[in-house]
């Protein structure tokens, strides 16, 4: 019994370190892309139940932005980053180098900037999985969805049975040129990704 209880925390810790590595690498890549230092500070990673996400985001009817990537390659799966709409506007300001409060709505360029952030975060998360497990994975182009929290989460629910599963909550500060915004991200790797990591964690336990 003790062994089976120890296993989820092992996977949790593996996922946490992969995600932390992923967002730091993404920050480095953003820095290179925009030519200015872009950092992610104070990342706090915890796990929450999937069904609790709507309440944390203010309720299932609240407006939010989802950045969605599919995983293709030797394993397939999906990653969704969700932020409240107001935070997405602040992130867009940060990415575009504008003072916080400038962006009032998400046009094509702002969505593209957010997609790039999701793309980099997702890619580096996947690269970390690939490096750690030896499987070949690549992300699809990101889709940016602006809608109610519940409707965005349906995308994940529709493709995997995750209702009782826990997902990673990353709370971090994004900083550019002294300006910063706090954002909560959810990384929701699907069962196939989790299974790959379980195997990895089992191998590490045996090794």
């Amino acid at each position: 019994m003790e062994e089976s209880q120890a296993q989820p925390s092992k996977i949790q810790s593996l996922l946490s370190s992969l995600t932390a590595e992923g967002i730091q690498n993404a920050a480095r890549a953003m820095t290179e892309m925009i030519g200015e230092t872009f950092t992610v500070t104070d990342p706090n990673i915890s796990s929450v139940k999937f069904t609790e996400i709507p309440q944390i985001l203010g309720g299932p009817e609240n407006d939010a932005v989802g950045i969605y990537l599919r995983i293709e390659g030797n394993i397939s799966g999906q990653i969704m980053l969700i932020v409240p709409y107001s935070k997405a506007l602040e992130l867009a300001d940060l990415l575009m180098g504008e003072p916080i409060g400038t962006t009032q709505s998400l046009g094509r360029i702002e969505r593209s900037a957010l997609a790039e952030l999701g793309n980099l975060t997702g890619s580096f998360f996947l690269n970390a999985i690939a490096d750690s497990t030896g499987v070949y994975v690549r992300p699809s182009p990101p889709a940016v969805i602006v809608d109610m929290v519940g409707a965005i989460m349906d995308i994940i629910l529709a493709t995997c049975d995750i209702q009782s599963e826990e997902v990673l909550l990353i709370q971090a500060k994004f900083v550019r040129n002294g300006r910063e915004t706090q954002a909560d991200f959810w990384v929701i790797p699907d069962n196939i990704t989790i299974n790959t990591l379980t195997e990895k964690a089992t191998q590490e336990n045996e090794g």
Binding site: P60, G150, A151, M153
Partner: peptide
């Protein structure tokens, strides 16, 4: 009315609500 739920009522004052239906 949450995901995968049915709610019934026989109180005329009640309003049943499903928030944020996407593909659901």
């Amino acid at each position: 009315v949450g995901l995968g739920e049915i709610k019934l009522s026989q109180d005329p004052e009640d309003i049943l609500v499903a928030y944020g239906l996407g593909s659901c």
